[in-house]
Design a protein around this nucleic acid. Sequence first.
RNA 1: AAAGCAAGCCGUCUUAUCGCUGCUCUGCUCCGGCAGAGGAGAGGAAAGUCCGGGCAACACAGAGCAUCGUACUUCCUAACGGGAAGGCAUUCUGGCAACGGAAUGACAGAUAGUGCCACAGAAAAUUACCGCCUUUGUAAUGAGUACUGAUUAAUGCAUAAUGACUACCUAAAAAUAUUCAUUUAUCAUUCUUUAUUAUUCAUUAUAAAAGUAAGGGUGAAAAGGUGCGGUAAGAGCGCACCGCCUGGCUGGCGACAGGCAGGGCAUAGGUAAACCUUACGAGUUGAAAGACCAAAUAGGCUGGCAUAGCAAUGGUUAGUGAUUAAUAAAUAAUGAGUAGUCAUUAAUGUUUCUUCAUUAGUCAUUGCUAAAGGGCUGCUCGCUCUUGGCCAGCGGGUAGGUUGAUGGAGUGCAGCUGUGAAGCUGUGCCUAGAUAAAUGAUAAGACCUUUUGCAAAAAAGGACAGAACCCGGCUUACAGGCUUGCUUUUUAU
RNA 2: GGCCUCAUAGUUCAAUGGAUAGAAUAGAAGUUUCCUAAACUUUUGAUAUGGGUUCGAUUCCCGUUGAGGCUA
Length: 135
Amino acid sequence: METTQDFSSQKFPKQERLTSKKTIEELFSKGSSVFVYPFRLLYLPKPFGSSHLPSHPQVLFSVSKKHFKKAVDRNLIKRRMREAYRLNKRELLQAIPTHQLPASVALIYIAKEKIDFATLQKKLKTIWLRLVNNA
RNA sequence: AAAGCAAGCCGUCUUAUCGCUGCUCUGCUCCGGCAGAGGAGAGGAAAGUCCGGGCAACACAGAGCAUCGUACUUCCUAACGGGAAGGCAUUCUGGCAACGGAAUGACAGAUAGUGCCACAGAAAAUUACCGCCUUUGUAAUGAGUACUGAUUAAUGCAUAAUGACUACCUAAAAAUAUUCAUUUAUCAUUCUUUAUUAUUCAUUAUAAAAGUAAGGGUGAAAAGGUGCGGUAAGAGCGCACCGCCUGGCUGGCGACAGGCAGGGCAUAGGUAAACCUUACGAGUUGAAAGACCAAAUAGGCUGGCAUAGCAAUGGUUAGUGAUUAAUAAAUAAUGAGUAGUCAUUAAUGUUUCUUCAUUAGUCAUUGCUAAAGGGCUGCUCGCUCUUGGCCAGCGGGUAGGUUGAUGGAGUGCAGCUGUGAAGCUGUGCCUAGAUAAAUGAUAAGACCUUUUGCAAAAAAGGACAGAACCCGGCUUACAGGCUUGCUUUUUAU
RNA sequence: GGCCUCAUAGUUCAAUGGAUAGAAUAGAAGUUUCCUAAACUUUUGAUAUGGGUUCGAUUCCCGUUGAGGCUA
């Protein structure tokens, strides 16, 4: 496991995604949030004294069905968000010291219209910096 | 060639980099996975969830009722509210017509019953009302006839009066008769006008009775339609044609069509996407169903150890009592003896032993109970707080995982059967399988569309839309392109 | 994923299949007032949408769109 500490990897395997229903519920009920248009970011810090150190947070991307009725649009935005995170993962993770990394992060798309990939990337970086300052 | 309509088909492509999810192979592994290579990875509607089926769990003797759905016929199909072929109706259209063509149709039943049909209208379904017609009564008006009265005029083998003549008689006269005249009066007839009465006819009004359903401004809809006859007036009352109903016949598997005979038209208005009737069908719930594996945790269960209580049995220990036997010392008595001392006895004491009883403890076994301690009030009940252990096994089961779950009522081609939907045979082909949920992002190019532009080129954009167990349909959305057929127009030969 | 309900003026609601679709309130204009408020008068709907049944549809039936709810 320690060998996968390599930040240079642009991979985004399943361990780095948030899949557990329970932790999602916990995140949405207890997590603190940061808001930068067009995102809202929910995060949950690591449980105190947990022995095993995850090298990366578990991330979840979400788009509201109310704002985007069609599944095609939701899929497109989620894919763009995922790519933005994946391609900038190294930079983003190095910005935060390892012990301060949140355990789980939910990235929620708030805007009501589609945004192109470049600006999406920029906004993702700014909201991540806000998260760093808050933590 | 262009345009329109219809049917069918396709529905962006290529490369690079970085990724995502399965599959196969190889290697490594701490057996959880990891690495490398190869190859695969959204649709015609994947959508809506409107029908139907598979599959699964539960329910279920059978039948009926209720509820829901379907509704021209025959066929196709696993099934269907889908499809095919037909029938009928409506609309449009070609044609002089016969006869076609196209589109649409929730297209069973209103002659089983109930309900509703606003406004208008006589009336919305029983027929009633008005009206028409006939008869009768009454009234009025008009006409005719008759009677009566009045009136006017005319007429008269009428009457009377007067006069004359004649006859008779006579003195004369009167009277009588005849004839004539007169015109007065009366009467009669006719006519004019008028009145009354009666009657007849007509009209009107009114009342009653009978007939009738042709007509009655309306309305979406008015009790078969049109014509002729017929009638007091009318009426299928009769007849012709059309429509309707009934029953045979012929053709068709059938829906139905054709024709014949009869009924004379009624229990016949519309509405069943009003209730309803008839026939047929439907058990309920959905893959987040269901099946399996299974951490952690927990007053689940079982066993063992430990704990607390109660009861019984047995063992053991101790005490007490009784009993039996033994017994040293002390005490008492007796004897020997001055005494010490010695001996004997004692229903006395002590100790030990046997047996029995009882009490207490402890142990074991068995059975039962789980509680115990504290607080609130002294007790009971009640409430409340603390403790309620350790080990092993088992069961259910949470997180999680596996499965269900992707090759099938699949599809291209050919042949055969069938009008066709479709079926059968042969042969070839195909292969998404995610699970907070992959199938992408970026860059470059090609293709297409739009805008600007003479052009070159530039800019913007790439339809509708994303599998979630699977399949058959239906519905809805859709830029653009291709093929075929039909129609129209233009050009050329 | 599955199931159910609803849609009427700007807003909140009403309506038996029967016709100009009402009520309250808001908005606009006017009257009143020195001005405002209050009061009074007038005005504002393609009944979400497209079809069908019916003589006639807000109402009945079908399709589409949107909103809300239930289930796990």
